[in-house]
Design a protein around this nucleic acid. Structure first.
Length: 260
DNA sequence: ATGGTCGATGGTCGA
């Protein structure tokens, strides 16, 4: 099974690029973040044309998450179960016997901003839900833009982020908590010690200088971790070029595994 | 040291 997560930074601006990427990479499941589309503005027909089903939780202007899959999607839930958040930041579905979540974790903005507390609360609510789901027989995969670099290796220069979000101990503790609940960080498990980023700021030539962060993550339960075949960041996709020149500021993260 | 680039929007704000 081949799965991926990708923050596309507006699906309207990126639809042709995303369709091309799926056609080339033939993933079974793609978790998308930041569609920036209203609920009924999603491109279900365009995905159907290339043989994919899709579910979308949209809001318009900001946020918006989706799952695109070859297989049938069941048990779809919009948002985290029992959540009090009204923003479109989570969607879940079962595909081929695996439960998937596409997640867009709040940015946090700054450590003294209310949005930072909102981010931590979102992660705590997610952990509550994960706690219930890991004990089920259904394998679980979380994919998304977590807006957290789990470790020093995941930031190009940690001294540039002192006192900022994405690297704080409170945020990293939430990631560690997901691991303690039984979820493996698929990229890090498959590539221990490798510095690879998934996001580079549009500004200041950050991509050219490889000044990025690994903030897009795939987590999986044991049956996924044990069968891992490959986990890779598609850095080429961040370069842009071709008919649809403009890239997202995030690169897709792809994991391939045999379900054990 | 500062600001820089995108996308949605139709002012600026969010990232």
């Amino acid at each position: 099974m081949k799965v991926a997560t990708w923050n596309v930074n507006s699906l309207k601006a990126r639809i042709n690029r995303v369709l091309d990427w799926i056609a080339t990479n033939q993933v079974d499941v793609l978790m998308i973040q930041e569609t920036k589309l209203k609920q009924d503005a999603f491109f279900h027909d365009r995905f159907a044309e290339i043989g994919y089903r899709s579910v979308h939780f949209g809001q318009g202007q900001w946020n918006g998450v989706a799952i695109v899959a070859k297989g049938e999607m069941t048990e779809v839930s919009y948002g985290l179960l029992g959540e009090t958040f009204d923003e479109a930041r989570a969607i879940s579905a079962v595909v081929d016997g695996v439960r998937f979540f596409s997640l867009y974790v709040p940015n946090g903005r700054s450590l003294d901003n209310d949005h930072y507390r909102y981010k931590l609360d979102f992660l705590d609510k997610l952990a509550e839900q994960v706690k219930d789901l890991v004990s089920s027989d259904t394998p679980l995969i979380l994919g998304g833009d977590f807006n957290i670099a789990p470790n020093s290796l995941d930031v190009y220069d940690e001294s540039a982020f002192v006192g900022m979000t994405h690297v704080s101990s409170e945020e990293r503790r939430r990631v560690e908590n997901l691991r303690e609940l039984g979820l493996g960080d698929l990229f890090r498990i498959y590539n221990p010690g490798e510095a690879a980023f998934t996001w580079w700021d549009y500004r200041n030539g950050a991509f050219h200088k490889n000044q990025g962060m690994r903030i897009d993550l795939l987590f999986g339960t044991n049956s996924v971790v044990k069968g891992l075949c490959n986990v890779v960041v598609d850095r080429e996709e961040r370069k842009g070029g071709g008919k649809e020149e403009r890239p997202s500021d995030h690169a897709p993260l792809i994991a391939t595994f045999d379900l054990l």
